[in-house]
Simulated assay, not measured.
Amino acid sequence: MRHMSIVATAVAGLLSAVATTAPAAPRGVEAALARLDMAQKEMVAQADVAKLAALSAPELTINAPTGRVLSREEFLAMMRDGRIGAEEFDRTIERVRVSGDTGVVMGSERFTPTAASELGRTYGTAPLRRRYTNIYQRHHGRWYWLARHANVVPMPPGRSP
């Protein structure tokens, strides 16, 4: 009986530790930043260059999944002329962190490029699985999109994103 009590106590302790270390749903400022990040995804999906320009900091720098580093101006030009374009675009936010005036959003994306886009010419129009990080900076009470890194995750043959 004593053995069962020790095992039960150990299991309860383990479950408590897991529950306290599992990522919680974002609250407050983190939840607001998560909503902004999903709005940014919609801006890209709809090729809304005007809204993307308004959201983007002048220093926006993107490490693109095409293997190039883009300035704000290069990114917006590519959105305008279709070199960046999505047939479908889904995003899953996995972590949001805010420290002072800096916010970081990380997660995964399923992105189906248009045929005319750089990704479409490189990978075709099949859905791509990507990892991403967006960094935002708060200035005078407003969040601006400051930086992004996105990369295509290679899929083993026969698997889909």
Rank of each mutant, 00 (worst) to 15 (best):
M1H: 14
H3R: 12
H3A: 13
M4C: 10
M4P: 00
V7K: 00
A8N: 09
A10P: 09
A10I: 15
G13I: 11
L14G: 07
L14D: 10
L15D: 03
L15T: 05
A19G: 09
A19C: 10
T21C: 15
P26M: 07
V29P: 06
A31L: 06
A32W: 07
A34S: 10
R35N: 11
L36A: 04
M38W: 12
A39N: 05
Q40N: 13
K41M: 15
V44G: 04
V49D: 04
A53Q: 13
L55V: 06
L55T: 03
A57I: 03
P58L: 04
E59F: 11
E59T: 10
T61L: 13
I62H: 05
I62C: 02
I62N: 03
I62E: 12
N63A: 10
N63S: 08
P65H: 08
P65C: 09
P65T: 00
T66K: 02
T66F: 00
V69R: 05
V69C: 09
L70H: 08
L70N: 09
S71R: 08
A77M: 10
A77K: 14
M78S: 13
D81F: 14
G82M: 12
G82V: 15
G82L: 12
G82S: 12
R83L: 13
R83P: 11
G85K: 04
E88M: 07
T92Y: 09
T92R: 01
I93G: 02
R95M: 06
V96C: 02
D101R: 15
D101L: 06
T102N: 02
T102G: 05
G103S: 07
M106H: 12
G107S: 07
S108K: 08
S108D: 07
F111Q: 06
A116G: 12
A116L: 07
S117P: 06
L119S: 08
T122W: 06
T122M: 15
T122I: 15
G124K: 08
T125S: 07
T125Y: 01
A126R: 15
A126G: 10
A126F: 07
L128C: 04
R130M: 01
I135Y: 03
I135F: 06
R138T: 05
R138H: 04
H140C: 09
H140R: 14
G141W: 00
G141A: 01
W143V: 03
W145M: 06
W145V: 03
L146D: 00
L146N: 04
H149E: 11
N151Q: 11
V152Y: 05
P154G: 00
M155E: 07
P156I: 02
P157E: 01
G158L: 00
R159T: 09
P161S: 08
